[in-house]
Amino acid sequence: MSRIRALAGVISLSAGLLFSTANLAYAAQPAPELVLNLTNQQVKLSDYRGQVVYLDFWASWCKPCQRSFPWMNDMQAKYGEQGFTVIAVNLDSERKLADEFLSKLPAHFPVAFDPEGNSAQTYQLKGMPTSYLIDKTGQLRIAHQGFHVEKQASYEQEIQGLLAE
Protein backbone atom coordinates (compact mmCIF):
# COMPACT_ATOMS: atom_id res chain seq x y z
CA MET A 1 0.00 0.00 0.00
CA SER A 2 2.69 2.47 1.00
CA ARG A 3 4.48 1.53 -2.21
CA ILE A 4 1.48 2.53 -4.24
CA ARG A 5 1.24 5.82 -2.38
CA ALA A 6 4.93 6.46 -3.04
CA LEU A 7 4.37 5.76 -6.72
CA ALA A 8 1.45 8.20 -6.78
CA GLY A 9 3.78 10.76 -5.24
CA VAL A 10 6.31 10.27 -8.02
CA ILE A 11 3.64 10.58 -10.66
CA SER A 12 2.19 13.81 -9.27
CA LEU A 13 5.67 15.29 -8.91
CA SER A 14 6.42 14.33 -12.46
CA ALA A 15 3.16 15.73 -13.79
CA GLY A 16 4.19 19.12 -12.41
CA LEU A 17 7.36 18.93 -14.46
CA LEU A 18 5.78 17.68 -17.64
CA PHE A 19 3.58 20.56 -18.59
CA SER A 20 5.72 23.51 -17.51
CA THR A 21 7.62 24.18 -20.71
CA ALA A 22 9.13 27.62 -21.14
CA ASN A 23 8.40 28.75 -24.68
CA LEU A 24 9.73 31.99 -26.03
CA ALA A 25 7.02 34.31 -27.32
CA TYR A 26 8.45 36.78 -29.74
CA ALA A 27 7.63 40.46 -30.21
CA ALA A 28 9.62 42.62 -32.64
CA GLN A 29 12.48 44.39 -30.88
CA PRO A 30 15.88 45.73 -31.93
CA ALA A 31 18.40 42.94 -32.47
CA PRO A 32 20.95 43.11 -29.63
CA GLU A 33 24.29 44.32 -30.95
CA LEU A 34 27.01 41.75 -31.53
CA VAL A 35 30.68 42.01 -32.36
CA LEU A 36 31.33 39.40 -35.04
CA ASN A 37 34.80 37.89 -35.31
CA LEU A 38 34.89 36.70 -38.89
CA THR A 39 37.81 34.67 -40.25
CA ASN A 40 39.87 37.72 -41.13
CA GLN A 41 38.02 40.77 -39.85
CA GLN A 42 35.88 42.06 -37.04
CA VAL A 43 32.50 43.59 -37.85
CA LYS A 44 29.35 44.51 -35.98
CA LEU A 45 25.91 43.08 -36.53
CA SER A 46 24.64 46.65 -37.02
CA ASP A 47 26.98 47.00 -40.03
CA TYR A 48 24.46 44.83 -41.87
CA ARG A 49 21.61 47.30 -41.37
CA GLY A 50 19.71 47.67 -44.62
CA GLN A 51 19.97 43.98 -45.34
CA VAL A 52 17.76 41.10 -44.28
CA VAL A 53 19.93 38.97 -41.98
CA TYR A 54 19.46 35.30 -41.15
CA LEU A 55 21.48 35.08 -37.92
CA ASP A 56 22.25 31.46 -37.12
CA PHE A 57 23.87 30.11 -33.96
CA TRP A 58 25.49 26.72 -34.49
CA ALA A 59 28.17 24.30 -33.33
CA SER A 60 29.99 21.40 -34.94
CA TRP A 61 28.51 18.82 -32.56
CA CYS A 62 24.91 19.81 -33.25
CA LYS A 63 23.27 17.36 -35.66
CA PRO A 64 20.45 19.57 -37.02
CA CYS A 65 23.09 22.27 -37.66
CA GLN A 66 24.66 19.92 -40.18
CA ARG A 67 21.37 19.75 -42.05
CA SER A 68 20.97 23.52 -42.05
CA PHE A 69 24.23 24.28 -43.86
CA PRO A 70 23.30 23.13 -47.37
CA TRP A 71 20.05 25.08 -47.06
CA MET A 72 21.76 28.23 -45.80
CA ASN A 73 24.20 28.03 -48.74
CA ASP A 74 21.22 27.68 -51.00
CA MET A 75 19.48 30.75 -49.54
CA GLN A 76 22.66 32.81 -49.71
CA ALA A 77 23.08 31.89 -53.37
CA LYS A 78 19.46 32.62 -54.19
CA TYR A 79 18.88 35.90 -52.33
CA GLY A 80 22.40 37.22 -51.70
CA GLU A 81 22.10 39.74 -54.50
CA GLN A 82 18.74 41.02 -53.29
CA GLY A 83 20.15 42.35 -49.98
CA PHE A 84 20.08 39.18 -47.90
CA THR A 85 22.83 37.51 -45.95
CA VAL A 86 23.25 34.55 -43.67
CA ILE A 87 25.55 35.15 -40.70
CA ALA A 88 26.46 31.97 -38.84
CA VAL A 89 27.87 32.36 -35.35
CA ASN A 90 29.89 29.34 -34.29
CA LEU A 91 29.81 28.49 -30.59
CA ASP A 92 32.39 25.69 -30.48
CA SER A 93 34.80 26.19 -27.62
CA GLU A 94 37.54 24.71 -29.82
CA ARG A 95 38.14 26.45 -33.13
CA LYS A 96 39.67 23.26 -34.55
CA LEU A 97 36.30 21.48 -34.39
CA ALA A 98 34.55 24.31 -36.21
CA ASP A 99 37.23 24.30 -38.92
CA GLU A 100 36.86 20.54 -39.39
CA PHE A 101 33.12 20.96 -39.81
CA LEU A 102 33.59 23.77 -42.32
CA SER A 103 36.09 21.75 -44.33
CA LYS A 104 33.40 19.09 -44.78
CA LEU A 105 30.43 21.43 -45.14
CA PRO A 106 31.86 24.67 -46.56
CA ALA A 107 29.90 27.82 -45.83
CA HIS A 108 29.36 30.36 -48.62
CA PHE A 109 28.35 33.09 -46.18
CA PRO A 110 30.06 34.93 -43.30
CA VAL A 111 30.93 32.75 -40.29
CA ALA A 112 31.77 34.39 -36.96
CA PHE A 113 33.54 32.59 -34.13
CA ASP A 114 32.48 33.04 -30.53
CA PRO A 115 34.21 30.35 -28.44
CA GLU A 116 33.20 32.08 -25.20
CA GLY A 117 29.50 31.96 -26.07
CA ASN A 118 28.98 35.65 -25.22
CA SER A 119 26.62 36.16 -28.13
CA ALA A 120 24.61 33.09 -27.12
CA GLN A 121 24.31 34.58 -23.66
CA THR A 122 23.17 37.92 -25.11
CA TYR A 123 20.51 36.21 -27.20
CA GLN A 124 19.51 33.84 -24.38
CA LEU A 125 19.43 30.82 -26.66
CA LYS A 126 17.03 28.08 -25.64
CA GLY A 127 18.31 25.42 -28.01
CA MET A 128 20.74 24.58 -30.79
CA PRO A 129 20.63 25.67 -33.47
CA THR A 130 18.66 28.87 -33.02
CA SER A 131 18.21 31.30 -35.86
CA TYR A 132 16.78 34.82 -36.08
CA LEU A 133 15.48 36.78 -39.01
CA ILE A 134 16.39 40.45 -38.73
CA ASP A 135 14.69 42.94 -41.03
CA LYS A 136 16.31 45.80 -42.94
CA THR A 137 15.78 48.18 -40.01
CA GLY A 138 17.61 45.90 -37.57
CA GLN A 139 14.52 44.56 -35.81
CA LEU A 140 14.38 40.94 -34.66
CA ARG A 141 11.29 39.59 -36.38
CA ILE A 142 11.26 35.82 -36.32
CA ALA A 143 13.06 33.19 -34.25
CA HIS A 144 13.43 29.50 -34.98
CA GLN A 145 14.53 26.97 -32.47
CA GLY A 146 16.05 23.94 -34.17
CA PHE A 147 16.26 23.39 -37.90
CA HIS A 148 13.48 21.36 -39.46
CA VAL A 149 14.02 20.20 -43.02
CA GLU A 150 10.27 19.91 -43.57
CA LYS A 151 9.84 23.60 -42.71
CA GLN A 152 12.44 24.83 -45.22
CA ALA A 153 9.79 26.19 -47.57
CA SER A 154 8.22 28.32 -44.84
CA TYR A 155 11.63 29.59 -43.70
CA GLU A 156 12.24 30.67 -47.28
CA GLN A 157 8.87 32.43 -47.50
CA GLU A 158 9.74 34.40 -44.37
CA ILE A 159 12.95 35.59 -46.04
CA GLN A 160 11.03 36.56 -49.16
CA GLY A 161 8.51 38.40 -46.99
CA LEU A 162 11.15 40.51 -45.25
CA LEU A 163 12.97 41.21 -48.53
CA ALA A 164 9.71 42.52 -50.01
CA GLU A 165 9.21 45.08 -47.23
Partner: peptide, 8 residues
Protein backbone atom coordinates in the same frame (compact mmCIF):
# COMPACT_ATOMS: atom_id res chain seq x y z
CA UNK B 1 22.58 21.59 -16.15
CA UNK B 2 24.22 23.52 -18.95
CA UNK B 3 23.28 26.17 -21.47
CA UNK B 4 22.22 24.80 -24.86
CA UNK B 5 25.52 25.88 -26.46
CA UNK B 6 27.63 24.17 -23.79
CA UNK B 7 26.85 20.63 -24.88
CA UNK B 8 30.02 20.00 -26.87
Amino acid sequence: GVQPWERD
